[in-house]
Design a protein around this nucleic acid. Sequence first.
DNA 1: TCTTTATGGTGAG
DNA 2: TCACCCTAAAGAT
Length: 259
Amino acid sequence: MPEGHTVHRLALDHGRDLAGRPVAVSSPQGRFADGARLLDGCTLLDVEAYGKHLFYRWGHPVLHVHLGLVGTFRTFHGDAPAPTSGTRLAMRAEEVTVYLAGPAACELLDPAAEDALRARLGPDPLRADADPGAAFAVLQRRRGPIGGVLLDQRVLAGVGNAYRAEALFACGIDPHRAAASVGRDEFDRLWHTLSGMLRQGVTDGRIATAPGGGRFVYKRAGEPCVRCGATVAGASMAARTLFFCPRCQCGNAQGCALG
DNA sequence: TCTTTATGGTGAG
DNA sequence: TCACCCTAAAGAT
C-alpha cells in the first residue's frame, strides 16, 4: 500500500488520533520490545511524514517507521482485536488502537541518525518546503532513464512504482528517455502532476489517478490504453514492473496532454 | 494448505 | 543485476 500518499495520510491520522495524549506502546511480536518499553506511557508530541518515512516525536529519540513493500498499519476505534503474530508495534491512546506489521524499519533514531537519513532524501512533492529545482538539478546529472530516476528517493522522495507509471503517462513521457533529456518546463509539469496525484491520494486514501477512480496504465498491462486504445505494456525497469502506453509515450509525444 | 503477489530498500557480487 | 528481508491477503491446488 505504501507510497508517499499513504505515509502522509498516516501522519495526519496518527497525529489526530494519538498526539497530545499518553500512548500505551508495546511490541506484541517482540522485535521492538526495547523501544516500546522506552516509549510506553509517553505523550506523543507530533507525527511527521517525509517521503515514505514516518517520524514520531516524544521528546525521546524519534521513532522512525518505514513500511517497505509489505508494511501495513491498521487502526481500530473502540475495541481492537488481538494483534496478529506479526504485529511489531501497537500504540493505543484512549479509544484508538494502531497496529503495525511488516515494516522495513521500526526503530529509534538519535538526532544525528535522523539528520543522516533526511540528508539522503530528495524533495517531497507533498511537503510545503519542497524545492522542485533541487530535484531537477539532481535529475539533470543522472545517467539512465527517467523511469528509473523517478524511483530514486535521493532525487524525489515519496514516489513509487504506481505514481511513476501514472505521472509519466499523464505527461506523455517515454519512461525510457534519458533523465537528463527532460527539460525544465517538462520537469515542472511532471512535478506538478506528481504533486497533484499524490495530494489526491492523501485525500482518497488510495491511488485513483484516472477519471472515474481508476488508473491509466498501472497494473493494466495487456489492456487497451484509455486514451488511444493501444495495448498497455508491462516491462521491468529499475527492478520493478513499469507500465506504459507504447503509443502515447513513444518518445516524441509533446507535453502533458492529461496533466 | 500450499503458492503467489505487493505501491520498497539494502547490500553483495 | 540479483538475492533477500518484512507480512497478509488472494488465488491456486
